[in-house]
Design a protein around this nucleic acid. Structure first.
Lengths: 355, 355
DNA sequence: TTGAAAGCGATACCAA
DNA sequence: TTGGTATCGCTTTCAA
């Protein structure tokens, strides 16, 4: 049976022979309603298939139970566990996460912020620190907690947790240099601001070590894929057959580079060392397994959500630390070295060997 | 400057010296408002940073501009482009997509449906056909268009687009059999209903061809990963060293199987043929490239969104076809055969060679 | 072209 | 413990 329109609070109230307010209470604060009425109301709710209208509720209570989250992509495995971590925290608090995928476009992000704010979210969680002035303005005006994640800035909108991608890029090169490599290539995808920073870190390191990067960098404006990793590395190999190592701005490109080596019979790591970024699951499974710079994506998502929750549902206190550097970890595997150990970097400044 | 609360329609109206209705019109139907007033209102909107309250608007107009979408996962690359296709269609119509990831849990799905319906979406798009009775009931009661995608059922809730995963599994085995293989293994992940159907199709084919699957099937209750693909295939290899081919319920497992072969020096496809499922991007990039059964994920998402849009915004007509079978395609690559051609199956019944 | 009044479905506050 | 009333911010009549 499909009714003309869905049951409302009043419908339930009539059916149960009580006033709408009482129904509202029976749903929000059952302990404030007598057992007898509660049962009658529960029955009415069930028999009508009543589902509270969230919009009306939010409008009246000034509690939307909505948090807005914007991610730049879903295609690479980078943002799933980050998102899942955020959802896990909020779902326990009955807060709905509104996710928008803006595909690495600051313009789309601006539009998404505008749209999401229309839902009056109680907080916003963003990726990166490269929002447009307009975006920053809107977020500030909204007067809600805002968290920028996965990157660091001197001038955060509000809360900020992340790492220095410049330092991470530097560390990757430093690591390869420490293995004795000098001709270190770099594959990168323009369009992702954090990849650009890793590129900058790569360049800074090459300069610092007095190494030339001429002909060793390949970049694409497109979304990176494994296939693209093969192509970009093929370019480098054709230009600089003597290349000894390659640092890729993400693991997809790194896997592509590995496949290109397999195809050409280049031995990894004997002839060429590969380092990826993000430490996705497949890095540990490939042959040889891929060395990769890992970041604390889950921790960052969790921290963002927990701090937001504390502010909007807790004592209303701001957290002690409004900015957190989660650093990064170089997971050393067979693609760069036969031996097994792990290099860890905290605060993005010094890399230390963990085990 | 942060105001105590955000600007409302009335605030804009006061500032512009007009009535609230006029402001509403200037925003929704600019052509109904004189140019002079429109400009004054636009200025007021800008200077106050006014963003319409979507909740109030939806409540008053009975148009929420929301469509609910539920996906079982985001971790594998399967649902990104499907989702993107849906978003692309709706964003042009200014409809916001509310996405919930229920991680392959029918229970979570039920809860998600309940929550989403609270937002009064104008339609719902679901993955699969295995909703609980409760879920079906709620969706039916909601009186909105519902699309079940990626799988087929004789008893759809409303619209249905997908393919027969049983047929697809059968076809994969049939294909491997046509290459002369008899000892055909299967790696699968329990927990995904569609993987289970592919498994059933595998078994049906093995039975039909009079082949034994004893010791050739490895399954895991966990989310599949590349690493897991290695482990599962290692199990099979240890049990049945003479295995000639393996059909994997998804590409992650297939890639893992390939890596396990590389590790053990098993030549692909000379010693062993591998077939994956989903035809993710990396299949074409690996060495050798992976044969995989592809599905029309993007087309299915697009069809679902377009038909929904037609129903809720168009003439209100139901589409001609309420059920569509998109079939599947076997993309034959090096992991199963040196030569190059493509086997295509439509309506899941016959496989035909396309090129 | 503009505005006044009623109401969307719920909750908060105050009274009984 | 229960209910009446005003209100949330906007849109939809209907009138001017």
């Amino acid at each position: 049976m499909t009714r003309k329109h869905r049951a409302t609070l009043s419908d339930v109230a009539s059916k149960a022979g009580v006033s709408p307010v009482t129904v509202s209470r029976a749903i929000r604060h059952p302990e404030m309603v007598s057992k007898k009425l509660r049962e009658r109301i529960d029955n009415a709710v069930r028999s009508l298939g009543y589902i509270p209208n969230h919009l009306a509720s939010a409008l009246a209570s000034h509690r939307t139970n909505i948090v807005g989250v914007i991610v730049p992509s879903l295609t690479n495995g980078v943002f799933d566990d980050y998102l899942a971590a955020i959802q896990d925290v909020f779902s326990l608090a009955n807060i709905q996460v509104l996710v928008t995928n803006v595909r690495y476009s600051a313009e789309k992000e601006e539009k998404a912020i505008n749209t999401l704010l229309g839902y009056h979210p109680e907080a916003m969680i963003l990726v990166g620190v490269d929002q447009t002035d307009n975006s920053r303005q809107m977020l500030t005006n909204a007067g809600i907690p805002v968290v920028q994640t996965l990157d660091l800035t001197d001038n955060p909108i509000d809360l900020n947790i992340g790492l220095s991608h410049d330092d991470a890029g530097y560390a990757a090169v430093e690591y390869l240099r420490s293995l004795g490599h000098e001709s270190i290539a770099h594959l990168t995808a323009r369009g992702d601001p954090r990849s650009q920073q890793r590129h900058a870190g790569y360049q800074r390191a090459m300069d610092t070590f007095g190494l030339s990067s001429e002909g060793l960098v390949a970049l694409t404006p497109r979304i990176s894929t494994v296939q693209l990793g093969r192509r970009l590395f093929a370019e480098v190999l054709d230009r600089q057959p003597g290349v000894e190592a390659v640092f890729c701005c993400n693991d997809d490109l790194a896997l592509g580079a590995l496949f290109e080596c397999q195809q050409r019979g280049i031995r990894v790591p004997e002839d060429l060392a590969i380092v990826g970024f993000n430490d996705l699951e497949f890095c540990a499974a490939s042959v040889p397994p891929l060395t990769s710079v890992g970041t604390e994506r889950i921790q960052m998502g969790k921290w963002a959500a927990q701090n937001v929750l504390e502010i909007i549902r807790g004592s209303g206190q701001r957290p002690d630390k409004c900015q957190v550097n989660t650093g990064f970890t170089i997971h050393e595997r067979g693609s760069s070295m036969p031996a097994h150990k792990t290099v860890h970097g905290t605060r993005g400044t010094k890399a230390r060997v963990v085990s």
